[in-house]
Amino acid sequence: MAITNITVISHTFFYLLGIPGLEDQHIWISIPFFTCYIVALLGNSLLIFIIVTDNSLHEPMYIFLCILAGLDISLSTITIPKALAIFWFNSGGISLNACITQFFFIHSTFVAESGILLLMAFDRYVAICYPLRYTMILTRSVIIKIVMSIYLRSIVTIFPMIFLVKRLPFCKNNLLPHTYCEHIGLAKYACASFRVNILYGLFVIFITIVLDVILIVLSYCMILHAIFHLPSQEARHKALNTCGSHICVIFLFYIPGIFTVLVQRYGKKIPPHVHILIANVCMLAPPVMNPIIYGIKTKQIKNSLSHLLFHRKR
């Protein structure tokens, strides 16, 4: 009886194709990518510098904003330089381990940002609903513990994805039609069932992003209830103004992500390059717009920036 040995070769190297279908436009597409990346780096770095150097901004609200700015820098730096390398030099080669490392940091940073936005909503809730106990509730030690728990949650929930992908044999196509690595985007190229990856990915979304959104909505329901029971219109206006920037950032962070999920689920007839461009907007929009929103709508930061520019001119 003849015995046939079949050797399955698992790919350990992949090629990110950038935006398939628009290869001839990669140089032009790189211009807004590069511009947005520079704006994100400069804007968030300036925001961090202002908060760190201005003692009047050493309050929980601005500490959380400083952390958010740091996460925005990380999120854009994890994704955009590789995309630019693809656009400029056609350098899309990436090892399996590097690909896994990239999607681990992308997903964990995204989950951490969601946690910080929830923490900022809690900060506004305490400041408006319990103003006299604000400093007693949000002490330095409490802030450190909460922030560390947010980082720990992001790492613990995303870390199993590494092993879920490492167990898969990749003997299919090793060409990835994207500008960065993503968990399911990589797993679907395996020549084995990746159903566990899908189920775990959904589980992570529900216990992090969905839960955070629900708690943020509940927080703002209680905040708005408290605001509309304030005695004076001036007090109500001031309270609403302090929440305005955070609400804008929340919509900017979650809406593109929700739109991307809906497009991937129901937009089967939408060209692949549109999916990829929308996914990149999710990575670029918050890092670019967050410092602009807070710089325009937050009086204390505007004053600090004006003082910094005026002092430099002198």
Rank of each mutant, 00 (worst) to 15 (best):
T7K: 12
I116F: 13
S76P: 04
G295E: 11
F228W: 10
V196G: 11
I19D: 02
H58R: 12
V147M: 09
P20C: 08
C221T: 13
V126Y: 02
T260R: 00
I137E: 02
T7R: 11
K269E: 11
C66L: 11
C248K: 09
R195K: 10
I270Q: 06
L164V: 01
S306W: 11
T12M: 13
C66V: 03
Q25L: 15
V142Y: 09
L22N: 09
P20D: 08
F89I: 12
D212E: 07
N55H: 14
L284A: 10
Q25Y: 15
L57G: 08
L47A: 11
M148T: 12
L186Q: 01
P256D: 08
F49D: 05
Q102K: 03
L202P: 00
M283V: 15
T53W: 14
R195G: 01
L309P: 01
C181E: 02
T7W: 09
L41T: 01
V204S: 06
L138N: 03
I155S: 03
M1C: 12
A2P: 14
G267Y: 00
C36M: 13
Y130M: 15
T35I: 15
Y200T: 10
I106R: 01
M289R: 03
A85W: 07
V249R: 01
I51M: 00
A190T: 08
I106P: 02
A85Q: 10
P272V: 10
S193L: 04
L84Q: 01
V126D: 01
S154A: 14
L262R: 06
I51P: 00
L138T: 05
R153Y: 01
M161A: 10
L152P: 01
V142F: 11
I209K: 05
A121H: 04
T77V: 06
Y37W: 14
I276Y: 00
I94S: 05
C221N: 13
S74M: 13
K299S: 13
F89M: 14
E113V: 15
V213K: 03
F228P: 05
N174G: 08
L186I: 06
K268Y: 02
T101V: 12
P272R: 08
R314T: 10
W88V: 09
N97C: 06
I143E: 09
K302P: 04
I19P: 01
H183F: 12
F103P: 02
G115M: 12
K145I: 14
W88L: 14
G244W: 04
F310L: 14
M148F: 10
S45L: 08
I296A: 08
T298S: 08
P286V: 04
I158N: 03
L308A: 11
K299T: 13
K297F: 13
